[in-house]
Design a protein around this nucleic acid. Structure first.
Length: 139
DNA sequence: GCCAACGTTGGC
DNA sequence: GCCAACGTTGGC
């Protein structure tokens, strides 16, 4: 199993929106970037990810699980763009902020730190465990 | 609200 | 196939 990070502007699609979809989950649509799309193509059902709020909040606020592998993005006719479906798994006890992540040298190689614009990113197992710990999650 | 960074587009 | 122009993202 692999780990990922999904970034969203809370004003567009927030953690609460994701939670409201329950176990049915929702397409992670709207990705128009090849790198991000390619990562989604690598995802398998059961992979887990962090849900990150960009913009005003800049913090990891929950975890999600991949429930459908890459398929065409229903929001566009452009066959290039695909997406996976994800469902909310656990809310964090404590949001893990970008500042915290930047301040932790164990996390200095995270894509979030080094390529902040990439909206879908891989997370290593080590990073996953560290952040789960910071977030108060069993991980 | 600004601006830097970056990715995509389109003209050549 | 290159590269300038442009648009978007996201941190500050």
């Amino acid at each position: 199993m692999r780990y990922w990070l999904f970034k969203s502007e809370p004003s567009t699609w927030s953690w609460d929106d994701q939670v409201a979809k329950g176990d049915a989950g929702e397409e992670w649509d709207g990705v128009r970037n090849y790198q991000a799309r390619n990562f989604m193509r690598e995802m398998k059902i059961g992979d887990q990810g962090f849900f990150y709020h960009s913009q005003s909040e800049k913090a990891i606020v929950g975890t999600v699980e991949v429930i459908a592998e890459a398929h065409p993005d229903s929001k566009t006719d452009d066959a290039r763009w695909e997406c996976v479906d994800i469902k909310a798994l656990n809310p964090v006890k404590t949001p893990v902020t970008l500042d915290q992540i930047k301040a932790d040298e164990r996390l200095s190689d995270m894509v979030l730190v080094n390529n902040s614009r990439l909206s879908v990113q891989p997370v290593t197992e080590t990073e996953w465990r560290i952040i789960c710990d910071l977030a108060g999650l069993p991980g």
